[in-house]
Write a protein that binds this DNA or RNA. Structure first.
Length: 223
DNA sequence: GCGACAG
DNA sequence: ATCTTGTCGC
């Protein structure tokens, strides 16, 4: 399979992903991956194809980092809500494929079913890699729901046209909640379970935090 | 027609 | 995504 390069191709791929019915994945002993793309400091707006970028992925086993890969890359297009795969999809795939092995489950900075065609980048990247995925974002794309109570670990459902598409989750009692999105082969409750296990120390799940740090460190070193 | 709208 | 200022804590 190849990443779509045009809006029409991506929309067609998203429609297929929305009705795909992969075998549900159940968490056993976990290796958890995280991946992240950053852009130059001072970068603003939606950008364009050719923007410099840094993509990183990390692999954690028993909470310890056992793999890391960072690659200098180039954005494939501008950012447009609902079409994030056109900008970051191939970059994230390249970062994850650079790991010593694929994770049991991968955390992605993107939505899943919370998407105009129910096929956000977390789902798309998981399908592409053949790896179960969970999306984590700062806010929903289209879904709505009340914030959970200010207690660490509290969660509340997010709905899109009547469908449960994810959860608000508060990793830290006093701080803003994050959004947890079931991705490829992952149901909402499993997604929540995976992310909770990764938030022992920080608001941002550890695999995403380490991938973000790795990408930004590379950016600082290579301008 | 206009604003909203993951990163 | 990135920016901004102070603030709290290890």
């Amino acid at each position: 399979m190849v990443w779509p390069t045009t809006v029409a191709e991506l929309i067609e791929a998203q429609r297929a992903l929305a009705v795909a019915n992969p075998e549900p994945w159940r968490p056993g002993p976990l290796t958890v991956g995280g991946c992240f793309v950053c852009f130059p400091r001072g970068h603003t707006g939606i950008g364009a194809a050719g923007d410099p970028a840094w993509a990183a992925a990390v692999l954690l086993a028993d909470g310890r980092r056992v793999g890391r890969y960072v690659v200098r890359a180039t954005a494939r297009g501008p950012y447009q809500a609902g079409l994030l795969a056109l900008r970051e999809g191939p970059l994230l795939e390249a970062a994850v494929r650079g790991l010593p092995r694929l994770p049991d489950v991968l955390l992605v900075n993107a939505t899943g079913r919370d998407h105009p065609r129910r096929a956000g980048l977390a789902i798309h990247l998981g399908a592409e890699l053949g790896v179960p995925t969970v999306g984590v974002t700062h806010r929903p794309l289209l879904a709505t729901g009340e914030w959970p109570e200010p207690r660490a670990g509290a969660a509340s459902p997010l709905f899109l046209e009547g469908e449960l598409v994810g959860y608000w989750l508060r990793p830290r009692a006093a701080k803003r909640p994050i959004v947890v999105h079931p991705g490829w082969r992952v149901d909402p409750e499993t997604a929540l379970d995976v992310v909770r296990r990764c938030c022992a120390r920080w608001r941002t799940p550890e695999p995403l935090r380490l991938a973000r740090r790795a990408a930004r460190t590379a950016r600082a070193r290579s301008g």
